[in-house]
């Protein structure tokens, strides 16, 4: 599927070279100095995209677990906390949430007498992490529930408390089912990090937008942008598949 897509893109590029009236691949032609400068400018957004995605994913992994655990409680109140959080966060579109965090949250902080500025970098990370945590929480939930109840009962009868049971019995078994979907979720974060461009974060999409404004070559520049995400996602997918293979062979052992 992805291979097909790449060859389509290549075909597009070839078509472009043949009729230079409508196509302007020169903007990203690495053989010309200006083209090369443009390419470097575009790719230099990669670092920010990766940083935002990785930090947001790490926060989401921890936050998701903190949200998932009360969902397993026998107490109705705790389960409600989990349900309300997941349903509420899951229903907020990313862009409004980003605006709320970036423009709204500082006002709340200020009204509380706190002087916490939110820059585009952390604004994007907080938004992505919170938005994603509702999904990670659900991944944890199904992973934990896939472990038979007998396991936690046996842990209880050998004297383990709730957290020990999670730490030593449930999570080590659930992790095999949790890791692959978590890694998939990381792909989602990488793609959603493009929204950070609208609050001025200098990442991949922002860079492409800025060049489009000066070069008037949206088709060529956005094609390269898509290619950049494609490469990122392909790398992560390969990682996920490697992980799944490892986990799978572990299970059979």
């Amino acid at each position: 599927m992805t291979r097909l897509f790449i060859s389509l893109l290549g075909l597009l590029a070839l078509a472009g070279c043949s009729s230079s009236a409508t196509w302007g691949w020169y903007v990203i032609d690495p053989t010309t100095p200006s083209g090369w400068t443009n390419i470097k400018f575009l790719i230099s957004g990669m670092g920010a995209t990766i940083q935002i995605s990785v930090i947001a994913a790490l926060i989401s992994i921890v936050l998701g677990l903190l949200v998932a655990l009360p969902g397993q409680s026998s107490k109705r109140g705790w389960r409600m906390v989990n349900r309300v959080y997941v349903e509420f966060i899951r229903s907020i579109p990313l862009l409004p949430m980003l605006f709320w965090v970036f423009y709204g949250l500082p006002i709340i902080f200020r009204s509380m007498g706190l002087n916490i500025p939110i820059d585009p970098f952390w604004g994007a990370i907080i938004t992505l992490a919170i938005s994603d945590s509702a999904f990670t929480a659900e991944i944890y939930r199904s992973g934990i529930q896939s472990i038979a109840r007998g396991q936690s009962e046996a842990a209880q009868t050998v004297g383990l408390n709730y957290f020990q049971t999670m730490r030593y019995v449930i999570l080590p078994q659930a992790i095999r089912r949790i890791l692959p979907p978590l890694a998939n979720q990381f792909i989602y974060i990488v793609k959603m990090s493009a929204f950070a461009s609208v609050i001025g974060m200098q990442e991949l999409t922002r860079r492409a937008n800025e060049l489009v404004v000066t070069e008037y070559r949206p088709l060529e520049l956005y094609s390269l942008l898509i290619l950049e995400y494609l490469v990122l996602v392909l790398i992560i997918s390969a990682g996920v598949r490697w992980l799944e293979r490892r986990m799978g062979s572990d299970e059979r052992r």
């Binding site: 038979a148 007998g150 396991q151 009962e153 046996a154 209880q156 009868t157 050998v158 004297g159 408390n161």
Partner: peptide
């Protein structure tokens, strides 16, 4: 916990 041991049908 731990004072009353239990052996399950499915071993667990």
């Amino acid at each position: 916990q731990g004072e009353i041991g239990m052996v399950f049908q499915q071993f667990n």
